[in-house]
Design a protein around this nucleic acid. Structure first.
Lengths: 296, 296
DNA sequence: ATTTATAGCTGACTAAAGTCAGGCAAATGA
DNA sequence: TCATTTGCCTGACTTTAGTCAGCTATAAAT
């Protein structure tokens, strides 16, 4: 092969290094050094505690302090002591600071829009970006408990339904399926989890409580860009731990033969096949797993 | 849609900004400031003229001069006057400089290898990187005349044959086709061009001279990651200009019905269909175009 | 043979980033 | 309650990056 894998990655590195440099340069156009701009942006993103800013930007305490003083001097931010802990201080944007923050946002968005317009196949470009961002950020994927009606959860569920529709021979219509009520997947009856990578939902799983002596695992899904990173297992582990806490001892789930990789996953993570236990038209295979008691 | 296109791009930006920062940081681990490391790397890549370094790294003359002095002090490089132009100076790595350069290369390669290992679908990751690097670098794609036996040309041709094999119903075997001899696609009989983006070949076209009163356009191909950027037209324009220079007045080409987008492209760029003019088994459609005389 | 332009260098600066020791006030823990 | 820790700050630095005017040598143009 004439073009090695590594040389392709390094070409990518050069391209994005140039791009990052160009964005930094465009930020300088607002007459503020990069350090100050970064702090302002972080505050705009909602990172308001001084300590969190320090951690997030990797700045020395003294340096950050001076940058904050500078932004205060420009009347872009105000700092106030935290009510709960008087040592801590919280930064807030003033109206002028908000305007300035938005100006930086606009610079970023304009670059992003230009990039989108540059390629005829927008969807392929975005998919490529998602894949790379997910791969680069794989260490920082967190699993958060959330309401199944929250935005991130709905995003996952819609993607999940769309995928089922594409993969099932006769399509998929949620309304024909036993769509679990949200209440059955929230405390104290059940739980719902999403995997988040820098804010983007990449996967979900629901634990649905029932009155039938078992709970069900529902809506286990991982985004295509994140498959192979072991996310399904992480989500499942979280759901099982939640079940344990709720005193649930038996878990069940159903799946369709078309989802071959899902079946393989269940079989090699402690589930065993059982007879049909519901009359949902979509599933073809049914599994059960015993959950150890909390103290065991 | 809950996740906007722009937010996806910005997540990508954050991910690569972090990655670029991490790579810079790992470079600092060799005890040399980034500026000096960059200069050393550029010299290692073969950029040896001081002026070229300045242009390439975007450095001020004075600053670069000082950085070069520093590297000379570390005995990593030597500077000697250019034989052809005594004002110019050329940098060369000493053995110690070569070793140091290679240490930086290893750092880069290790990161690249780790990244590759991080994702189960290596080929998808690389394809995504190619697409993004090409999109980001779209302004700097250059079209270079080259020998059809050169590495970049062969890379394109192999990809072209592989694509034909995949798209033609009965596959494609070069040896059954009229594979033009390299000599017919080099001066003074013809020409061969490749499109290069930061060293990666993204497309090609051959101008094949014949003794039959016309020349042929052969092997017009654009990499999937670069389609939609107008590269085919650029390549064709270059080939036509080369034909003009060689005094060729009539161009012909053949194509297969399976390549629908190619046919559309020929029709809307001045070509008209003519009867079959050869007995190659693969083509189904034949085109001709008149080239204006040089002086016209 | 001059004049002019070019390539690179040096000196003298400034701005930005980063480091580190110490200080103070609030919170925490024995 | 009092020592200790924590969170943030200030002062006093250094290093890195970057700018700019002017210098010298070579080369090119007239």
């Amino acid at each position: 092969m004439t073009i090695s894998d590594i040389s392709r990655i390094r070409r990518f590195n050069r391209a994005v290094t140039r791009e990052v440099g160009a964005l930094d340069h465009s930020f300088l156009g607002r007459g503020r050094p990069l350090g100050a701009a970064r702090v302002l942006n972080a505050i705009g993103q909602g990172i308001d505690e001084v300590g969190a800013l320090r951690a997030n930007l990797g700045l020395d305490s003294g340096l950050l302090s001076r940058l904050l003083r500078g932004l205060e001097g420009e009347v872009l931010i105000t700092l106030a002591r935290d009510d709960a802990d008087g040592r801590r201080r919280r930064a807030r944007l003033t109206p002028a600071g908000q305007a300035e923050f938005e100006a930086y946002e606009t610079l970023s968005d304009t670059r992003a829009t230009d990039l989108l317009a540059a390629h005829p196949n927008t969807s392929a470009l975005l998919t490529a970006m998602d894949l790379i961002a997910t791969t680069l950020g794989r260490e920082e994927i967190e699993i958060a408990e959330t309401d199944p009606r929250a935005e991130a959860a709905i995003h996952c569920l819609e993607a999940y339904y769309a995928e089922l529709a594409a993969r099932f021979d006769g399509g998929f219509d949620v309304s024909l399926s036993c769509d679990p009520e949200a209440a059955s997947m929230t405390a104290p009856r059940g739980a719902f989890f999403v995997a988040l990578s820098d804010g983007m939902p990449l996967g979900c799983v629901g634990l649905k409580g029932t009155d039938l002596g078992y709970a069900e695992i529902k809506r286990l899904w991982v985004a295509p860009s994140a498959r192979g990173l072991g996310l399904a297992r992480k989500l499942m582990t979280r759901a099982e731990a939640a079940a344990q806490k709720l005193g649930i001892t038996t878990l069940r789930l159903d799946t369709n033969a078309a989802l071959t990789e899902a079946q393989a996953f269940y079989r090699n993570s402690g589930w065993h096949e059982i007879p049909r236990y519901n009359d949902d038209p979509y599933p073809t295979h049914f599994f059960e797993k015993a959950v150890a008691a909390p103290g065991a």
